[in-house]
Simulated scan of single mutants.
Amino acid sequence: MRRLRASVAVMALTLLAGTVGIIPVVSAQQTEQFPITTLNAGVYVIHAEVATTEAQREQGLMFRKQLAPNAGMVFLFDAPAAACMWMKNTLIPLSVAFLDPNGVIINIEEMKAQTLDSHCPDRAALYALEMNPGWFKQKNLKPGSVITGLPQAQR
């Protein structure tokens, strides 16, 4: 019965989030809400949660059991940097594209679930975009491809 109530609460939050532009993240480990934005990769539309604070970037997609087909998370760093990603407490494998300030893909890495392996940009990146494994390859996106609609740093 408790599980049913929790499921109903999550469904209600999900419906509410659709009207206010956030996606609730609910797990036994945390309850954090991330704003969402729409990105474009050529003809492909991405519904990306946005991680802009240190706490949001640290949490990322941890504890998720699945990710919708064209959903992801975009990380906005404070400045272009060699910010590496890892998969501690991340239950699903992911692909990550590192992007320069103009949204140009620098490089793409495939990341295995629940590992401490570092995945780093080939040069300073302002963004990292995590998607389901193989998403970029399936869409024929590679270094040099452009992602548009990225959030801008607060000045």
Rank of each mutant, 00 (worst) to 15 (best):
G144C: 08
A6D: 07
E58W: 02
M73L: 11
T19V: 13
A124T: 01
K88Q: 14
K137I: 15
R123S: 12
F98Y: 13
N40G: 10
I22T: 12
A71I: 07
A71G: 07
S145L: 12
S7T: 14
G60N: 01
P133I: 11
F75T: 01
G60E: 04
P133Q: 10
D78I: 00
K139M: 09
G144L: 15
A41N: 03
M1A: 13
R57M: 04
G134I: 13
A48K: 05
I105M: 13
I46S: 07
A82V: 12
V26Q: 01
G21A: 14
L150N: 10
G18N: 15
Q154W: 03
A17W: 11
E110I: 02
F136K: 06
N132G: 12
V104T: 15
A28D: 13
Q138N: 13
T37V: 15
V26R: 01
D78W: 00
N70V: 04
T148E: 13
V10P: 00
L150S: 02
F136D: 11
L61E: 01
G134A: 04
P93K: 06
S95D: 05
R5H: 09
Q29Y: 07
V146R: 15
T14Q: 10
K139I: 05
V104F: 14
Q66P: 07
A28K: 10
